[in-house]
Amino acid sequence: MKVLVTVKRVIDYNVKVRVKADHSDVDLANVKMAMNPFCEIAVEAAIRLKEAGIATEVVAVSVGSASCQEQLRTALALGADRAIQIDTPDNPESLEVAKLLAALIQAEQPSLVITGKQAIDTDNNQTGQMLAALLDWPQATFASAISLSGEQLEVTREVDGGLQTLSLSLPALVTTDLRLNEPRYASLPNIMKAKKKPLEVKTPAELGVSLKAHTRLIKVEAPAERQAGIKVDSVEALVDKLRNQARVI
């Protein structure tokens, strides 16, 4: 079975973002970029399926400019077999990414697609679901456990207030939540070997997709500074405020 896994290049989660002075976006000049943490979990999940003898091939895909090849090389170092960069300007919209991936998947015919549940830059949490809709595939988002028996994929999902388990027929799409696994480190010899693994570049035109804008980013601002509230002088006063003013208990 072939598994396709998606990878996004984002600002490293350790780096504080700063809004540009002109409010056009956040400033990414010379900041450390890395693979989106949820994508790392997706790559790890795919590699474990391969190590378990279930997956025969793991294909890593990223959509963006040539710089995202760095993250594809990381996926290859972690154990993906080959990589595909779909060459677009940076920050394509989710629906367009889903369309590009859908077109690629028609050609690649994987049985399972694993994506991160969201990217930590835009926090959209939508590309996987959109892709499943376009393919008319079943989906299991926010996965914390995956097991496969025959053509049935059983996925445990993290939902508000607990866990839900679904059974999907393949081909299917899974998006990863934090607790699905703990990603491995890329070893130094594997990073060297990854430089020789195949990395193919495809254009939207080759995939028959023309990109369209559905939204416009008007501005980006720093969040409002929180103001100090009031001091209460007793537990009684606190409980009263929480009950009758804030109404949160």
């Binding site: 703990e182 990603p183 491995r184 480190y185 070893s187 130094l188 010899p189």
Partner: peptide
């Protein structure tokens, strides 16, 4: 050793 332990390499 945590899960994902990767030993160092001699260069």
């Amino acid at each position: 050793h945590k899960h994902g332990f990767t030993p160092g390499i001699e260069l």
